[in-house]
Design a protein around this nucleic acid. Structure first.
Lengths: 164, 164
DNA sequence: CAGGATCCAAATGGATACTG
DNA sequence: CAGTATCCATTTGGATCCTG
């Protein structure tokens, strides 16, 4: 509520600015959606397949990103009207954020295998159990498992990451 | 689940890297905590007051950030043992992320008054109602209100931002 | 001051089924 | 294909109280 320095803010001190950015792309999926579009994944079901995001969630994210002028919804055929999503200038301008995120991961986070499935734990059942994160010293429930390698889920040396 | 290109990833294509970074600082508070520490707010109750974060939430975030070597917990007095939190090298290395976030907000987001209260809506009751975001075309409940100017909550020209 | 333990309301998100 | 409408399990986070 009462923040100490609302005035006299330097470049790194713009809490409001950070929060406003996060209010647009600060959720778990938005940045990933932006990145997917940047990679060329532009259509709804492609994004569904590519990201493993739930349908209503993707729909809402796309709507928000379009509303905030990060993405543009452009038609690519007519007969059944079909649209795809493209980055706007503002969306493209998010690249530095992505780069910063990637660089930090590469320089300051322990490596994991690039084949690690990071969005969803495998649907198999042997991982449908609690997961102990050695780094966090926390136990995560099955649905919290993110980035767990299929064969090294429990007891491995910080096999992956988790959200939450 | 099935992502298209797990291999042949360029620098911007490292979905895994992005997700791993987000798994550490991707929640609503962690980045704000880092930034507060960067500003010199280093002690538990200071952070509570400064951020308006709930006690158990801050405790958990600090623990995670320490575990992931973003913050260090260092004693600053002994008799009652007291600790404060400082940025590690890895934590300091998050500056580019903060800068990118701030820059994007400044160049691609509509301006709002810097006095806007962005973490919590005022505790007064006249704002304890639904909030219509013109940009998102979405209605947000009272607890979703973030960054609402006290006197221009409803009907203003996109008065602030919201999370969720 | 620096947390830990509870409790509870709310939001998030996934699955699924339906529609133009 | 591109969503929308429901429904429900889980998670999140805030408030409050307690402790060394």
């Amino acid at each position: 509520m009462a923040r100490s320095t609302d005035t006299q803010n330097g470049p790194l001190d713009s809490q409001a600015a950070i929060e406003r950015t996060l209010s647009v792309i600060g959720d778990k999926w938005s940045i990933l959606v932006v990145r997917a579009v940047l990679r060329g994944v532009r259509r709804f079901d492609e994004l569904i397949d590519d990201l493993g995001i739930a349908r209503p969630v993707l729909a809402e994210r796309l709507k928000r990103l379009v509303a905030h002028d990060v993405l543009a919804k452009v038609p690519y055929q007519e007969h059944p009207a079909r649209y795809e999503y493209r980055l706007t200038e503002a969306g493209l301008a998010l690249s530095p954020v992505l780069v910063a995120l990637v660089r930090w991961s590469e320089t300051h986070l322990p490596n994991v295998e690039p084949t690690t499935a990071l969005v969803h734990a495998p649907c198999g059942t042997e991982l449908e159990q609690a997961f102990w994160c050695r780094t966090c010293a926390t136990t995560f429930g099955p649905s919290a498992i993110r980035g767990v390698q299929a064969d090294a889920a429990v007891g491995a040396d910080h096999p992956g990451d988790h959200s939450g």
